[in-house]
């Protein structure tokens, strides 16, 4: 039977503008083997925050899981107050991650935007470990929002873009695609919907995307995080991001 469990906070530090890196440890880390899955994290002790927040897994090393989150409201702001030694109630890992196990000796493109960057790091590590060549394109709003540049640099070619041109290439992630060494066999993407839309429109090779949506239960019961199936004849007509996703083949759901 599944059960939410407490995890211990090892570190909760700011790594970029409004962006925090949270390191947790607990017995459930051993189940976090699939990049792209998320932790459904309880905010605070009382009932002020009634909903958990889905935070995707950024990395797993030994008994430590790293998640990166951005302050977008009161809940994520409250999460920044957690200190080393505090506990956090965690449900997870949840959801279906990136399918990666069959990829070997391929050239794989990773495209991340803002808070969509984190799950691609764990994925990149897994792909490189399996002998794939990885090229990463990361887009941020501005230079102060950039994070994990060094970490990704160690895993292959890296391109960084910013909306305002204050760091890296000025413009969209898709603007640097022509500079990527060809051929590319496969891509994985995660970020804001308009970015994912641009990426999937741009690329014709097979791809997978990880979607973000406001969630309720995070286990598939409440139907809050639903997206439309791309196939109009699809039997269900929808997919639940928390339970069927958050990772989907790019052609499976409508953006």
């Amino acid at each position: 039977m599944l059960k939410p469990q407490n995890m211990q906070v090892l570190q909760n530090q700011k790594i970029a503008q409004d962006t925090f890196e949270l390191k947790l440890t607990g017995p459930q880390v051993q189940d976090m083997t699939e990049p792209g899955q998320f932790l459904h994290v309880m905010i605070g002790e009382g009932w002020e925050h009634v909903l958990r927040r889905p935070l995707s897994i950024t990395d797993v090393e030994h008994h430590v899981v790293t998640v990166i989150y951005k302050i977008v409201g009161k809940g994520t702001r409250a999460l920044t107050e957690k200190k080393q030694g505090d506990s956090i109630d965690v449900l997870g890992p949840r959801g279906n991650g990136f399918p990666y196990q069959t990829n070997e000796d391929q050239h794989i493109l990773l495209v991340g935007g803002g808070v969509g960057v984190p799950p691609l790091f764990y994925l990149a590590k897994k792909l490189v470990a399996q002998g794939n060549k990885v090229t990463t394109v990361l887009g941020f709003q501005t230079s102060s929002a950039v994070f994990y540049e060094k970490e990704f640099q160690g895993l292959g070619d890296l391109f960084i873009t910013t909306d305002d041109g204050s760091y890296g290439h000025k413009g969209l992630v898709t603007d640097v695609f022509e500079r990527i060494e060809k051929p590319v066999d496969l891509y994985y993407t995660c970020g804001p919907k308009p970015m994912i839309k641009a990426v999937t429109n741009h690329l014709t090779i097979p791809g997978f995307m990880s979607l973000e949506e406001r969630m309720g239960c995070g286990i598939g019961a409440c139907f809050a995080c639903v997206c439309e199936a791309a196939d109009t004849k699809d039997e269900k007509g929808y997919r639940k991001v928390c339970q069927d996703g958050p990772v989907f083949p790019v052609e499976e759901v409508m953006l």
Partner: peptide, 9 residues
């Protein structure tokens, strides 16, 4: 979507 939003309690 969005179909849910948290409010105080």
């Amino acid at each position: 979507t969005p179909r849910v939003a948290e409010t105080s309690s």
